[in-house]
């Protein structure tokens, strides 16, 4: 990792000839170090991870989950949400596919809640920018969010609040899913092709988020004084956590873009809990997803769902801030 620091040192201080104590040099250094690090890691790790998980499809997860005991299923669904690749434009077919197979609504929701929060890219970036402890913490909280969210959805018997469209589809479960044999073995060359395609697709999708995220992080790093955060947003200020969560909702970003921002916020002394709460609410609760889920959920359920997420993220933030203080 030190390699990227040298690279940024060389670029900013030697090539650009900037003095290390200027604000602009601080910003640029942050920018080049993070950008180079993130892209190198993304390329290597997306490729490797894609090799491993080629063939892991939602259909297989569904078949696996539909035979499991209910108690463990919340946890398993949440865990699978973290590792299964799926594009948010597939959330409705996935939702229906799960529920049609007789998987309880809450277990499906556990999958859908964790999915945007925890994914391999986010974990890789967290590990390399903020350390493995933060990474484990983040993954843990994300998975627990899925489990608790799912339990809550079943507790309030949320099936009542599905749209007529969704309820109709539930009646006629389809048999056409057997066309493809999902458990067939995949050859190494097929895995390689899959991994290369994934790499291209993911990079194409996230590069702009990385640039935006690192850019904002860099500006923050260079130009926002530490005293500002300490004075106004320190751990002792209880209201800052819900405020961070509320600010995070309209800021729609994926996990890749928000991590460099979080790195910069943490370095400036924003408390751990507040940062976590902000990150989670930015990636988990978003308007596009709201619009998507509106097709299968009545407004009432959507509002309950979002309120629940906000409550949970706020609580998480408070708990972590509390432990940071003592």
């Amino acid at each position: 990792m030190i390699l990227f620091t040298y690279f940024a040192d060389f670029l900013v201080y030697t090539i650009f000839g900037l003095s290390a104590d200027t604000k602009i040099a601080g910003s640029l250094h942050f920018f080049f170090e993070d950008i180079s690090k993130i892209f190198v890691l993304l390329i290597i790790l997306i490729y490797l991870i894609s090799l491993l998980r080629a063939g892991l499809k939602p259909e297989r997860i569904r078949n696996f989950l539909s035979g499991k005991k209910r108690g463990v299923s919340y946890f398993l669904a949440s865990l699978f949400g973290a590792v299964t690749p799926f594009c948010s434009c597939s959330s409705i077919p996935l939702f229906m596919g799960f529920t049609q197979a007789g998987i309880p609504l809450g277990i499906t929701m556990a999958f859908l809640i964790t999915s945007p929060i925890v994914n391999e890219i986010a974990l890789v970036l967290l590990g390399s920018l903020l350390g493995w402890k933060f990474m484990v913490l983040y993954a843990g909280v994300g998975i627990i969010a899925g489990v608790l969210g799912g339990l809550f959805i079943d507790l309030i018997k949320a099936d009542r609040y599905l749209t007529p469209f969704a309820q109709n589809m539930l009646g006629n479960s389809s048999e056409s899913t057997t066309h493809v044999n999902y458990s067939k073995k995949i050859s190494l060359s097929e895995r390689n092709t899959f991994a290369l395609t994934e790499l291209r697709t993911i990079l194409k999708r996230v590069w702009i988020w990385v640039f935006a995220g690192v850019g904002i992080g860099a500006l923050f790093h260079g130009f926002v004084p530490e005293s500002f955060i300490l004075n106004y947003l320190g751990a002792g200020k209880i209201w800052t956590v819900p405020a961070a969560v509320v600010v995070g909702i309209p800021l729609y970003s994926n996990a890749t873009g928000i991590i460099p921002v979080a790195e910069s916020l943490l370095q400036k002394g924003l408390p751990l809990g507040t940062t976590l709460a902000f990150m989670m609410s930015t990636v988990a609760a978003s308007l596009p997803e709201f619009m998507m889920l509106k097709q299968v959920m009545k407004i009432k359920l959507l509002l309950i769902f979002f309120a629940m997420l906000l409550f949970f993220f706020t609580l998480t933030g408070w708990i972590f801030n509390f432990f940071t203080i003592i």
């Binding site: 996935l94 389809s174 899959f194």
Partner: peptide, 26 residues
């Protein structure tokens, strides 16, 4: 969306040739 779900598709896009799914979710 209804036709997609009726086909039992869970991750889009899907390509079928003569009704047989050959590419799913990518």
């Amino acid at each position: 969306m209804e036709s997609i779900i009726a086909e039992g598709i869970m991750s889009t896009p899907v390509l079928t040739v003569d009704g047989k799914k050959v590419i799913t979710g990518q």
